[in-house]
């Protein structure tokens, strides 16, 4: 796990002029976090809930690489377990957002007119309610489950996905190959499937990176406010919140998971930005 520390510093240093190195660093970091979240819990002795009472609030060192929290629980193990919660929520968010936004965006861009207007109204409505508050209400009424949190955050990413997809579909409608397909009488569904969806997918998937960071930050915020998974079940926001009271004496309890969260968001943002950048877009669209 020593590699965590070296890769941790790398994304921060990436210069924008050298995308391959930055991309490599971002992908490496995400792979390390994801693999750790998937594989480490399978190891014997992995128990983020187990408290070592002989070493409460121990600073980072051998034995506990990121230190222990006030209950003597290993901060690294809790951070890894928190990654599972964050990525589970993010996966659900992206699935809901892609599906909802994909269907609505395709419909709005394809049919235009009243359908477009109606969908525009629905997404406007969704955007005019404060997201965090609504998810908090739902969690307080229905209980904190990964499914409720992920699905609701996903619902609130639907307007953005819809906009992204709709814009691409509208632009495609003007392009020769779509009009040609229409003119030779290709069935609309076939045009959508064969000509439109393949062109929409890159933009939508690129936005999925953004949606993932939105979900990670939102889940963190919710847990931080006490509306996420119940402690002692670890989640990034929850662990960071737990360390608040000991910020003076044991800052690593909050700051270590906070650093992991920020680096993960940074890596995802960087990859999203790289995929969106004009130089790449030109090659993708050709």
């Amino acid at each position: 796990m020593a590699t965590v520390e070296t890769t941790a510093a790398r994304p921060a240093r990436t210069a924008r002029r050298r995308p391959p190195a930055g991309v490599l660093a971002a992908v490496t970091w995400l792979a390390v976090v994801l693999l750790a979240a998937l594989l480490l819990p399978l190891l014997p002795g992995f128990d983020p809930l187990h408290g070592d009472f002989s070493a409460p609030s121990a600073p980072p060192g051998p034995g506990h690489w990121l230190g222990t929290d006030a209950g003597g629980r290993d901060v690294l193990q809790r951070t890894v377990a928190g990654a599972r919660a964050s990525f589970a929520v993010a996966g659900l968010t992206v699935a809901v957002g892609l599906l909802g936004g994909g269907v609505l965006g395709l419909a709005a861009g394809w049919f235009r007119g009243p359908v477009d207007k109606a969908i525009g109204f629905a997404t406007d409505l969704l955007m005019s309610v404060p997201t965090l508050i609504l998810v908090m209400i739902a969690v307080s009424l229905r209980g904190p489950s990964l499914t409720v949190i992920g699905a609701l955050i996903g619902l609130f990413t639907v307007p953005a996905f819809t906009r992204v997809v709709r814009a691409v579909v509208l632009a495609l409608g003007e392009r020769g190959f779509v009009q040609a397909a229409r003119m030779i009488g290709t069935a609309p569904l076939r045009i959508l499937r064969r000509e439109v969806v393949p062109h929409v997918a890159p933009a939508a998937l690129t936005f999925a990176f953004t949606a993932t960071t939105v979900a990670i930050v939102a889940e963190g915020s919710l847990s931080f406010l006490g509306f996420g998974l119940r402690p002692p079940q670890p989640s990034w926001g929850g662990i960071i919140a737990e360390g608040r009271t000991t910020l003076g004496s044991a800052p690593w309890i909050s700051l270590a998971p906070a650093a992991v969260l920020c680096l993960t968001v940074l890596a995802l943002n960087y990859l999203g930005e790289h995929l969106r950048s004009p130089s790449r877009k030109a090659t993708v669209n050709r």
Binding site: S221, G237, I240, L247, P251, L261, V265, N269
Partner: peptide, 18 residues
């Protein structure tokens, strides 16, 4: 700005308090 955007509000607040 790019680095900054990766820091969520609650983490930033915590850092400022610290």
């Amino acid at each position: 700005a790019f680095l900054w955007l990766a820091v969520p509000g609650f983490v930033l607040g915590l850092l400022l308090i610290w």
